[in-house]
């Protein structure tokens, strides 16, 4: 059956309009739910760096949000560790709204660096750990995560990683709990106070528990692992000024207490 050109064009136009309307309609209806899911996911990731994954899993979405509200304080610093109060438009800065991925495209000294502070309930001054976002490139697409440091600003309390398109079963395993747990208790500074970061090694199945700067690697996902290593090291360096400042203020506090 041969149809006329006019028929084909009209058919195509109608089909395009119908399918287009269907898709944009769905996107409109589901949009708010998707944004909520994303926000919840971000907050879960931040919390994942400091509390047990099972504990988060057991919480309902509302409980996660209220827990976050009660336990996390946040601020935004620049590369020199100075606190930024207002964003480019003069509005009060909200750390949760800072898009680390977008900032990544700017030069390192122009970026905004959010800091999330995990504190005791009801007392923002009683800090339990500091959570820093990290961001970089994996094998296929962006990877990002959150790294929590204990109050000595040296020992890693925990990490969470996420990715956009790493290979399932290989690079995508950076989201797996047993991979992330390998970072717990590792140290970012070497003996003389320089940032040495924590590096995922090539190959998998070796025991690095005696070395505070090495963790077991991901077999079959070397490029993703390298991406993780780069991203942690880069961001630790970006936050180094803030870390130094925080450390010296801790010291003066100690001194005044004595």
């Amino acid at each position: 059956m041969q149809q006329s050109n006019a028929y084909i064009i009209i058919f195509s136009v109608i089909l395009t309009v119908v399918l287009g309307l269907l898709l944009s309609g769905t996107s409109q209806v589901l949009g708010p739910m998707q944004r909520k899911a994303e926000e919840l996911d971000t907050k879960k990731q931040i919390l994942g760096a400091v509390i047990d994954a099972d504990q988060i899993k057991a919480m309902k979405p509302d409980e996660v949000l209220s827990f976050y509200e009660n336990r996390i304080a946040s601020k935004v610093v620049d590369i020199n560790g100075n606190i930024l109060e207002k964003d480019a438009d003069g509005n009060p800065m909200v750390a949760e709204k800072v898009n680390v991925g977008k900032n990544y495209k700017m030069p390192a000294d122009k970026r905004m660096y959010p800091v999330f502070i995990f504190h005791a309930e009801g007392n923002p001054d009683e800090v339990e750990s500091y959570v820093f976002p990290v961001y970089g490139a994996g094998l296929w697409d962006e990877i990002w995560g959150y790294l929590a440091l204990q109050t000595d600003l040296n020992t890693i309390e925990g990490v969470t990683f996420s990715h956009k398109g790493e290979t399932p079963g290989l690079g995508a395993r950076i989201t797996a709990l047993n991979v992330q747990q390998r970072y717990q208790g590792k140290e970012i500074f070497d003996g003389s106070g320089n940032i040495q970061s924590v590096v995922m090694q090539k190959g998998e199945g070796k025991d690095y528990s005696s070395d505070p700067h090495k963790v077991d690697g991901l077999s079959g996902a070397t490029i993703t692992a390298n991406g993780v290593n780069d991203m942690i090291k880069n961001y630790l360096q970006h936050y180094s000024a803030f870390l130094e400042k925080q450390k010296s203020s801790q010291k003066t506090e100690m001194a005044s207490l004595n």
């Binding site: 769905t26 996107s27 589901l30 739910m33 998707q34 899911a37 994303e38 919840l40 996911d41 996420s162 990715h163 399932p168 995508a172 989201t175």
Partner: peptide, 14 residues
């Protein structure tokens, strides 16, 4: 789109 709205973890993985 539905996975993204209702099963975000699956959406990330798949």
């Amino acid at each position: 789109e539905f996975l993204k709205a209702f099963a975000f973890d699956m959406y990330k993985e798949l």
